[in-house]
């Protein structure tokens, strides 16, 4: 990163330790030219990074806990996911559409993006590396039970496993099953046991010890 870049002094020190290969330079060149041309500002960049940093699976967990404790919300979530999340949870999912799929005693849902890495970033935060890996992308649709086993998740053979392949405009959120023994828990406590992987479908929610 050039120390003489008038727009970005605040980043220079941080970037000194980073890899400096061709693509890092390409990224820095693209960014500095766009800022110079007034397409966006360095402040816009920082604000956007902070906005994405604030998104995490905790948001998704709140949505799941609300659905477990409010039948009406759950029905709206399953029928018009994006609208319910935006209007009732006041979380902007940004994505064009969000489809919420419910795990039941008969069905377990798993989400993948075989072509790339589409993911509900503004509900769950950035996708984990494995979600973007060739192994997960290629095999989730071919041998989902085998892939789930690699996560330590064994789905009862009697349950159907449904795999959903995401697109840029259609992203999925799994509504996991509420584990037995948590009936009557408050929403906040329930949210605490919902992990990222349970909302992608590679794990099931277990009650806290």
């Amino acid at each position: 990163m050039p120390h003489d870049d008038p727009h970005d002094h605040s980043h220079a020190a941080v970037e000194a330790d980073e890899p400096q290969g061709y693509y890092q330079h390409l990224a820095a060149a693209t960014r500095s030219l766009l800022i110079e041309k007034g397409v966006f500002s360095a402040a816009d960049m920082r604000a956007m990074i902070e906005q994405i940093d604030r998104r995490s699976p905790a948001l998704g967990a709140k949505i799941v806990a609300r659905a477990w404790t409010d039948e009406g919300f759950k029905a709206r979530l399953l029928s018009r996911g994006k609208q319910a999340i935006k209007e009732e949870m006041e979380i902007d999912p940004v994505a064009a559409d969000i489809v919420v799929v419910e795990n039941t005693a008969a069905v377990h849902n798993v989400v993948v993006c075989t072509l790339c890495s589409c993911y509900p970033v503004f509900i769950l935060g950035r996708p984990p590396d494995w979600y973007k890996s060739y192994a997960y992308r290629s095999r989730a649709v071919r041998d989902p039970r085998g892939v789930l086993r690699e996560f330590g998740t064994e789905i009862d053979p009697a349950r159907e496993v449904r795999v959903h392949d995401s697109t840029a405009d259609m992203r999925y959120l799994v509504l996991p099953m509420q584990p037995a023994g948590t009936e009557g828990w408050l929403e906040e406590r329930l949210a605490g046991i919902v992990t990222r992987d349970t909302m992608v479908g590679t794990a099931e929610v277990r009650p806290a010890e």
Partner: peptide
């Protein structure tokens, strides 16, 4: 990119922290 249904080996459920330059690419 079209790898759905192929077999590209076992999944390693690990994660690395996103690097600052990667966050900037994402933000752009």
């Amino acid at each position: 990119h079209d790898m759905g249904g192929l077999d590209k080996g076992p999944v390693t459920p690990s994660a690395h922290e996103i690097e600052p330059w990667e966050k900037r690419v994402e933000a752009i």
